[in-house]
């Protein structure tokens, strides 16, 4: 019932997907991490994360309303947003460089970046 082409396609998709997921899993967290807030393609605010920082909250005016962002204990989340689907709120916390929370209707991105983005295990030559 399943042909060889079936298996090739299925395995191809799984390998491609797992490769991408694992790539994001193994990014090193050693560097100085920052939370970057972008609105409509422009950088709104960059907040460096330190070990014993106080909780930070930001209100961002987006395309259709306000997005409330909370940063606490070197992780970040969206607590409330005016968008209809609330996907950004359901995304929960992000705590690794490369991870992001996206609010598409409001065009807000909360992204964790790192100074040492090159310090990935892949380039150990």
């Amino acid at each position: 019932m399943f042909t060889r082409l079936d298996y090739i396609i299925w395995i191809g998709i799984i390998v491609l997907a797992l490769g991408g997921v694992l790539y994001y899993q193994q990014i090193d967290v050693k560097g100085q991490n920052k939370i970057e807030i972008t609105v409509d393609g422009e950088v709104y605010d960059i907040i460096p994360l330190t070990r014993d920082m106080e909780d930070v909250s930001r209100e961002v005016q987006g395309f259709i309303g306000t997005t409330y962002i909370e940063i606490s204990g070197s992780r970040a989340r969206v607590t409330y947003s005016d968008c209809p689907d609330k996907i950004c709120v359901h995304s929960g916390w992000i705590n690794k460089p490369g991870q992001m929370i996206v609010c598409l209707p409001n065009r807000v991105i909360v992204q964790m970046t790192s100074d040492m983005e090159q310090d990935i295990d892949l380039y150990t030559n």
């Binding site: 799984i14 997907a17 490769g19 991408g20 972008t38 393609g41 490369g98």
Partner: peptide, 21 residues
């Protein structure tokens, strides 16, 4: 394209592809 961020593709696509199976 809407949100003008290319990293969105590399971040979300692998997970979504895995879910699509």
């Amino acid at each position: 394209l809407i949100i003008q961020n290319v990293e969105l593709i590399t971040f979300y696509l692998p997970i979504l592809l895995l879910i699509s199976i």
